[in-house]
Write a protein that binds this DNA or RNA. Structure first.
Length: 802
RNA sequence: GCGAUUGUGGUGGAACGGCAUACACAACAGACUUAAAAUCUGUCGGCGAAAGCUUGCGGGUUCAAAUCCCGCCAAUCGCACCA
């Protein structure tokens, strides 16, 4: 009866039914418990879906399908993060409008996703590049602006010469551009910043209240990089201005024998007349400017620097005059761009002092400063102020008290995280809704004028002057100031890739609202996102940014939870068949659609869930994928093995309920591989037996449905069940059924397994112990020995003899 | 340099401190085939003559360690002169 499993026809049939019956739309106004499952929406690239997308989406797809069967009202949406550089670069190359390309790519992605059989609620689809969406991205930006979290500053910024854009710190991790991977250079530039550092503590503390793996939390903590220390002012000889430094070891202040300023430090320019070797300074600055960030950090083996002639500092506690150097091991971007150097207790300062001949004065007991700096803690020595302060307990606290009393310094906090450089000099992004007015300064576009739509341009090429293509459109640039009505000019830069994705999970809750970004009533029901799965590479980018925006929206009363995501997980990479990271250049990329054509969507889904530990990187194996196809074929053929009578014996029943428990629990812990293994074992049991009852088979189909929904629905229908699986009740195991008739014990003597015995399930410990001792296999090991102890636990008996 | 993660058969991988190698892949054999494929049924870690030894290596804790602790080694990822 059950012929060949024709996956192509079956998958098409059920995908059509799901679409027509709108099976997976989240319900409104329900009394049901909710589950909001979210996967990172993709950037719709021209290449279409990657197997990595499949692994990322299938986990929550399985969980969402299971939740629906468990009676939850499930929101499992999908949309597109459709602004971004690749579309724009492609547009430049082919002279097609990015909007046209993006629309086409979205259609392509959607069609591919539907072929995988995902149960997304397509009625809520969004795209960040549509005006009705980015209207609210701009709205949130204006709120940030109104609350003083948008500011403009001229500093050294990351710049990608290839993409011709300013990048944020997060966009240039490892010194490479996030989009094109070319090397990022440092340039002084005037840019818009979002004050994410104002939320550093909230982003840090919020981690206590969410369920993220430690690896994710740790990466965010490290990226934020909070440190506590002190700011200290150093007087400069014969100059009114003071040089401020930041230190985490103010207790070593008496050991400061010189100071170092970053080459770009702006104070230098103010006193160039005083610096006698200015030529040398300029030459050194020029060498440093030529180095890339990479060279400055990765390749330095030897310290370089220039001693300033005629520009010296005074150690504020000892009163001694000390030299000031310029050296590129001090960064302008951290602290104040200047340091107090304590060569006795800081390895970098030690190396510098050795090379440039500065004094090394120990002020903390311990270590051998002849060999290297001693960076540990200890009693303070050679420090005059000690009499008045008890330095035994906490030398840092003692020094801080001293500093603030004398007005020299104060406690301070620093973060490695920098403010978010937010404007991009490119076309395909949200226009920044700001207006520059000669009279009023920078003014926000009035909220009622949103969306500020992206105008059409002829030429998407960024300007050679570092300006966005929008700057060439006079009708866009020229406007009137909303405040004074005078002539004004629009900001012509656009927002970065990460803007639209910083709040998209809120829009899915209420995607068509034209009054607000999201209805508060609906948010109260759906938020927070219960489970968010995505890539590890977004932890210090998108995840951090969206948590920042959400905390802000919470602070201004626009959302009802401080954190957007209650739980976050990540998927491990799928490597190429050769074990290397998949890349076009290596030619080891696996196309999921080809896999669907050869093996079917159910096999693809089952294999990506079976291939290994979900969070670990695993190489793709076509043979293993074929093994999953074989498993599904075996399940299909079970239809030929259905026997008439409905009897299930105790062993069989026990095996089925053990499988229900295993699959139910393992899915919750993302142990999809062992869940599938359990179902494979059950199928092997059925084969060994040679037959299966209809009910037994249906239970298996229910468990397998989230993984292989098409085939199981088809089998369910062919078996004559009228109720479709996707909304049938998830099987519940019966604790009492788990108990098998007999239990196998391993019998150990001094921890080594010597025998196996089978005992009735209700046998007590004494009986098990007796049977173990009586076993013929253990007898030789007990002969002539005294039994000192017998341990009976679970299914192990350990006889300790001596 | 700092931090995190991971080291288990030919391969992907299983194992609340409790019978190491579940489940699959590959390989081998048998059945069915004229034959192949598919399918079904078996066998299947290594070393050792054996007792035994064997979860990267060396110690420790425990009746019992792949699992916990300490010290190495290797790999992967993240950060990186962060003062």
């Amino acid at each position: 009866m059950a012929e060949r499993y024709d996956f192509t026809a079956i998958e098409k049939k059920w995908q059509k039914i799901w679409e027509e019956q709108n099976c997976f739309a989240a319900e409104e106004d329900t009394k049901k418990p909710k589950f909001y499952g979210l996967v990172e929406f993709p950037y719709p690239s021209g290449a279409g879906m990657h197997v990595g997308h499949i692994k990322a989406y299938t986990s929550l797809e399985v969980i969402s399908r299971k939740r629906r069967m468990q009676g939850y009202n499930v929101l499992f949406p999908m949309g597109f993060d459709s602004f971004g550089l690749p579309a724009e670069n492609y547009a430049i190359k082919t002279n097609t409008h990015p909007h046209v390309i993006t629309t086409k790519n979205i259609e392509h992605f959607k069609e591919q996703m539907k072929r995988v059989g995902y149960s997304f609620d397509w009625s809520r689809e969004i795209a960040t590049s549509l005006p009705e969406y980015y209207r609210w991205t701009q709205w949130i930006f204006l709120k940030l602006f109104d609350h003083g979290l948008v500011f403009r500053a001229k500093t050294q910024v990351n710049y990608c010469p290839h993409c011709k854009v300013v990048l944020s710190n997060e966009d240039s991790q490892g010194g490479r551009c996030d989009v094109c991977h070319s090397e990022v250079i440092q340039l002084p530039k005037d840019v818009w910043y979002l004050k994410i550092t104002a939320y550093a503590d909230k982003l840090l503390n919020g981690l206590d209240d969410v369920d993220y793996p430690d690896s994710i939390k740790q990466q965010e903590i490290d990226w934020i990089g909070k440190s506590t220390g002190a700011f200290v002012d150093f007087a400069i000889k014969d100059v009114p201005e003071k040089l401020e430094i930041y230190t985490t070891r103010c207790d070593t202040l008496f050991g400061v024998t010189f100071m170092v300023m970053a080459p770009e430090h702006p104070m230098l320019d103010r006193y160039r007349d005083r610096i006698k070797n200015w030529d040398e300074v300029e030459a050194y600055r020029a060498t440093c400017a030529k180095k890339t960030e990479f060279e400055r950090t990765q390749l330095v083996k030897e310290k370089t620097g220039v001693k300033l002639d005629g520009f010296t500092a005074i150690n504020p506690v000892s009163g001694k005059e000390i030299p000031i150097f310029l050296a590129d091991y001090v960064m302008m971007g951290y602290g104040t761009g200047a340091i107090m150097a304590v060569p006795a207790h800081d390895q970098r300062d030690w190396e510098f002092a050795k090379k440039f001949g500065a004094d090394i004065v120990p002020v903390i007991e311990g270590g051998d400063i002849e060999k290297e700096a001693y960076t540990g803690n200890g009693r303070m020595i050679n420090s005059d102020f000690l009499n008045a302060y008890d330095n035994k307990k906490d030398s840092i606290a003692a020094m801080l008290a001293f500093l603030s009393e004398k007005g020299i310094g104060h406690k301070g906090v620093q973060y490695k995280m920098k403010d978010w450089a937010f404007n991009r000099q490119r076309y395909w992004g949200e226009p920044i809704p700001l207006i520059h007015c000669q009279k009023c300064g920078t003014v926000g576009v009035p909220y009622e004028e949103l969306p500020l739509t992206l105008p059409d341009v002829e030429n998407f090429e960024p300007g050679t002057d570092g300006q966005s293509p929008l700057a060439r459109i006079e009708s866009f640039v020229n406007c009137t100031c909303p405040k004074c009505g005078g002539a004004a000019k629009r900001e012509t830069d656009t927002m970065p890739q990460w803007a639209g994705s910083s709040w998209y999970y809120l829009r899915f809750i209420d995607p068509n609202n034209t009054e607000r970004f999201c209805d508060p009533e609906k948010m109260r029901y759906w938020m927070p996102v219960d489970w968010y799965n995505g890539g590890m590479e977004h932890v210090t980018r998108h995840l951090l940014y969206s948590r920042f925006w959400h905390h802000f929206l919470y602070d201004i009363g626009e959302v009802n939870t401080p954190e957007p995501y209650a739980k976050r997980t990540y998927q491990g990479l799928i490597l190429g068949p050769d074990g290397d990271k998949m890349s076009k250049s290596k030619g080891n990329v696996v196309d999921p659609i080809e896999v669907i054509e050869r093996f079917g969507a159910d096999t693809l889904r089952t294999y990506v869930m079976f291939m290994g530990d979900y969070m670990a990187a695993t190489p793709w194996s076509e043979q293993s994928a074929n093994g999953c196809k074989r498993f599904l074929d075996r399940v299909w053929r079970l239809m030929d093995m259905v026997r008439g009578e409905d009897d299930t014996d105790r062993e069989q029943r026990s095996a089925i309920h053990a499988c229900i428990k295993k699959v139910t629990d393992d899915i919750e812990h993302m142990k999809f591989n062992t869940a599938i293994a359990a179902m494979m074992s059950l199928v092997n049991d059925f084969y060994a037996k040679g037959s299966v009852t209809k009910d037994e088979l249906r239970t298996l189909l229910l468990l397998l449905n989230p993984f292989a929904p098409h085939m199981t629905e088809e089998m369910n229908e062919q078996l004559g069940f009228s109720e479709q699986l996707h909304h049938a009740a998830w099987p519940v195991y019966d604790e009492s059924a788990l108990i098998a008739a007999s239990v196998e014990y391993g019998v150990q003597v001094n921890g080594k397994v010597r025998a196996r015995i089978s005992m009735p399930a209700d046998a007590d410990k004494a009986a098990v112990e007796e049977a173990a001792k009586a076993s013929a296999d253990v007898a030789p090991y007990l002969a002539g020995k005294t039994v000192r102890k017998v341990i009976v636990v679970k299914n192990i008996v350990n006889i300790v003899v001596g």
